[in-house]
Design a protein around this nucleic acid. Structure first.
Lengths: 107, 107
DNA sequence: TCATTACATAAGCATATCCTTATATTATAA
DNA sequence: TTATAATATAAGGATATGCTTATGTAATGA
């Protein structure tokens, strides 16, 4: 894939209001899928599909923790993707359950 | 239109390989539509429609010169749009006809 | 082992996108 | 005027997108 195609793919991934909101949520750090569902007010599969698009564009990374899956922003972004993220107003999410985040503290 | 919607509109405008190529052409300065048609290898109406999308997102500006219409990058860009433009490899275009650009010199 | 929980995938549908060809508009030239 | 040239708009069709509901998968816990 040449540079322009890669750029197009990344831009397509972020050119959607719901996916921009997902990125705005991930500015606070790792978030699990159920918390993102609450924010977006769409179905869980819809969120899964959008997360996949962002992941396939190398914009976000995932990490499995038991039955939960945590997503976070990739630490290495294309400069233009980073500029988009910088422009987003952060959105905070609630923890779906105490167990979801408790493992973080155990590590 | 709130900030997120404006951002979405601008990102939709640039999330297309042909429109990215148009922006790459406009990095060299003002260009008329016929020269852009040559570069993209699509029909003239297709180019017109894409230019309109970029214009409606405030990414490019137009200027009428006789029967020609010259497009250029807006001098004031959102930081993230500027980052996208900066990332593009410039593309040079041929002048469709001597008269198209000659008026520039008269001014 | 079996139910539950968190998430992913599949299928289907409504709408959006992007091209095409045909036609309209506008300015210049003969 | 009338023809031509540059561009815009309209209409239509193929494909892409983004949602939904239904179902599959993997890990945990009783």
């Amino acid at each position: 894939m040449d540079a322009l195609m890669k750029m197009e793919k990344q831009l397509k991934a972020v050119s959607d209001a719901n996916r921009l909101k997902l990125l705005a949520c991930l500015k606070q750090g790792e978030v699990c899928v159920c918390d993102l569902v609450d924010v977006l007010q769409v179905s869980q599969p819809a969120v899964s599909q959008q997360l996949r698009k962002l992941k396939e564009a190398d914009i976000i990374l995932e990490r499995k923790r038991g039955t939960w899956k945590h997503y976070r922003l990739n630490e290495e972004q294309s400069p233009f993707i980073q500029a988009i993220i910088d422009d987003l107003e952060p959105v905070s999410t609630e923890n779906c359950s105490p167990e979801c985040s408790i493992e973080e503290k155990i590590i």
